[in-house]
């Protein structure tokens, strides 16, 4: 059944009944706890990404690798990051693969990525959180393109670290990114509060209260000051 499903991937266009490839998803579940079988399945899936199977087939493979992918799948997925059609589904897997290689692949793809794809990659780095360096996100924050800058801000907010705060503090704010930069600051303050760093959080809230771009931001800062007192 599994062999037939992999065979079906070769012609898996939009419109083909998904039942044809269901054994792949069944194998994802069935191989849990069997590292040899899981490794073999992952290798087969990653290999498909290096072929010219239809887009819908590669989408399917990325969905499976989201659950079972390891560092072994990262090179095949990383090759798709600059592909306008497949970048999102590659991130679908890379965003959740808990191997440092996945974060490195995302970071490495930023600079040469076209704008829209770059925003997606930055967003995925923010969603990963823990193992992501601040520097590439800070660079995005300082990008002249306001939408890339917005993406960098939100990703830094998701990180919520002291270094993220430092980067956000030096952001050039404009009409397009101001709400995101402010929200990112507030997210960082919340992260600090959650870690018991009330005084550090209060500094951020006070800054937002003083210079927040909107009434809404000042309300949030006011709430935060109360929470951090």
């Amino acid at each position: 059944m599994l062999d037939q499903a992999f065979e079906a991937l070769k012609t898996y266009q939009w419109g083909v009944d998904p039942k044809a490839i269901k054994p792949i998803q069944d194998a994802v579940v069935a191989t849990h706890g069997d590292s040899a079988a899981r490794g073999k399945l992952e290798s087969r899936l990653a290999a498909v990404l290096n072929t010219d199977v239809p887009r819908a087939a590669k989408d399917t493979v990325c969905r499976a690798l989201k659950t079972i992918g390891t560092s072994g799948s990262v090179p095949a997925l990383a090759k798709l990051l600059h592909d306008e059609q497949l970048s999102h589904m590659a991130r679908h897997a890379l965003q959740t693969i808990d191997a440092p290689e996945a974060a490195k692949a995302l970071v490495a793809a930023i600079d040469k990525a076209p704008k829209k794809i770059k925003i997606g990659i930055i967003s995925s780095l923010g969603a990963r959180g823990n193992d992501v360096p601040v520097a590439p996100l800070a660079k995005a924050l300082s990008d002249k393109d306001a939408e890339i800058s917005t993406a960098g801000a939100l990703a830094l907010g998701a990180l919520g670290s002291a270094d993220a705060v430092k980067a956000l503090g030096s952001a050039k704010v404009n009409d397009t990114n101001r709400i995101a930069v402010c929200d990112a600051m507030l997210q960082c303050a919340e992260s600090m509060l959650a870690h018991g760093k009330k005084s550090e959080a209060k500094v951020i809230y006070t800054k937002v209260l003083k210079s927040g771009p909107t009434k809404t931001a000042k309300i949030a800062a006011d709430l935060g000051i109360t929470a951090s007192s």
Partner: peptide, 18 residues
Amino acid sequence: DAEANRLRNRARREPWQI
């Protein structure tokens, strides 16, 4: 359960982000 944790979120298609 690392695999279950992977299913908590989905990557958002560019340029959408939260």
